[in-house]
Amino acid sequence: MELKDNLNKVLEEIEQARRHSVTGQEVRLIAVTKTHEAEIIKEITNLGIKDVGENKVQELKDKIGKLGNIVNYHMIGNLQTNKVKYIYNKVEMIQSLDRIKLAEEIEKRAEADNICVNCLVQINIGDEDTKSGIEYCKTLSFIYDLLDFKHISIRGLMAIAPNTSDEKYLRSLFRKMFKMKEKISNENFEGLSMDYLSMGMSSDFKLAIEEGSNMVRIGSKIFGKRIY
């Protein structure tokens, strides 16, 4: 019952924030199950959740091995090039594309299988040394470079905001991300879409939605504290 109650509360808060959003768009919830056992994914799917996010490749592999494709899996953590081969054809989306070498590896694997891999470009919106992602000012040039990759489908942008209680600062960062998404959309690049702006986690998702996010990645508010 606790899981169901937590989820319902999160869904209510998402809807409330959406009503005050600059876009009014529906918001896609990614339930982040990192460090939790695979069984909890079964529970969450029974409650209607269709998308699950994982930070680590090994954990993602293990859960897919145990459960199969009962949900859409999203790789939301830093992805090393030598681990692409384990998940590129098993996930709904790679949300952490942030360098050309990674794109080259995804492209190579996808081309061999004649598939297209959905990706989001991760931006280091807070310019934090401890976080992955490209610099905000380099977003457009990175996007230009990605246009040559025919087996990668760019579906939008992703960002992880700094861990701070300064709501004004967070709003300013989320607003910058939305402006970048709109700028890229207006370029009308062939084969590229800005369907998703993935930003907002347990501590800041309401602010993110109000400033234009239409995809949030929420873990602890649904599942409680990490197991380890």
Rank of each mutant, 00 (worst) to 15 (best):
G200S: 03
H74M: 01
G212R: 06
K221G: 01
S141L: 00
I44F: 11
L11M: 14
N72V: 04
G156L: 09
I30L: 13
E128P: 08
N78G: 04
D129S: 15
L67N: 00
I49T: 13
K90I: 04
M201N: 05
G48T: 00
E210W: 01
K150P: 07
N6C: 08
E211A: 01
T130Y: 00
S198C: 08
D195M: 00
Y196F: 14
Y169W: 11
M75F: 03
G200V: 03
T35V: 06
R226Y: 00
E37H: 10
L29R: 07
E2L: 14
M180R: 07
G24I: 11
E128F: 12
S220I: 13
D113N: 15
A161P: 05
L47I: 09
S132F: 14
E12N: 15
V121I: 15
I154F: 05
L197A: 08
T164C: 01
V91S: 02
E54G: 07
C119E: 11
K61I: 13
E187W: 01
D98I: 05
Q16V: 15
M177H: 06
I125F: 02
T130G: 00
K150I: 07
K9S: 13
D98R: 02
P162I: 09
I227N: 12
I44P: 04
S213H: 04
A110L: 11
L192N: 11
T164H: 05
Q16K: 15
K183A: 04
E187Q: 11
E92T: 07
D62W: 04
R18E: 09
V22S: 03
D148E: 15
E111K: 15
Y169H: 12
L197N: 01
S220E: 09
G68Y: 10
R109W: 03
G68R: 10
V216I: 02
M177R: 11
L207E: 04
L147K: 09
V71E: 02
G24E: 05
N8K: 12
E167S: 12
R109H: 14
D62I: 08
I209C: 08
M194G: 09
I125Y: 02
H36Q: 15
E210F: 02
G212P: 02
Q25N: 14
K179V: 14
L97D: 03
M194T: 03
K225G: 09
L147F: 04
T81D: 00
E37L: 06
R99V: 12
M158W: 06
N163G: 00
S21P: 13
N114G: 13
V10R: 06
T35W: 08
E13V: 10
E2C: 10
F189N: 04
N89W: 07
G77N: 02
E104I: 02
E37P: 10
K4S: 15
I154E: 01
D5W: 07
I76A: 01
H74T: 08
E182I: 06
L97A: 01
M215N: 07
D5M: 15
T23V: 15
E128R: 06
T23N: 13
C137V: 12
I143Q: 08
I115C: 10
K138R: 13
K131H: 05
K61Y: 04
A31P: 02
T139Q: 11
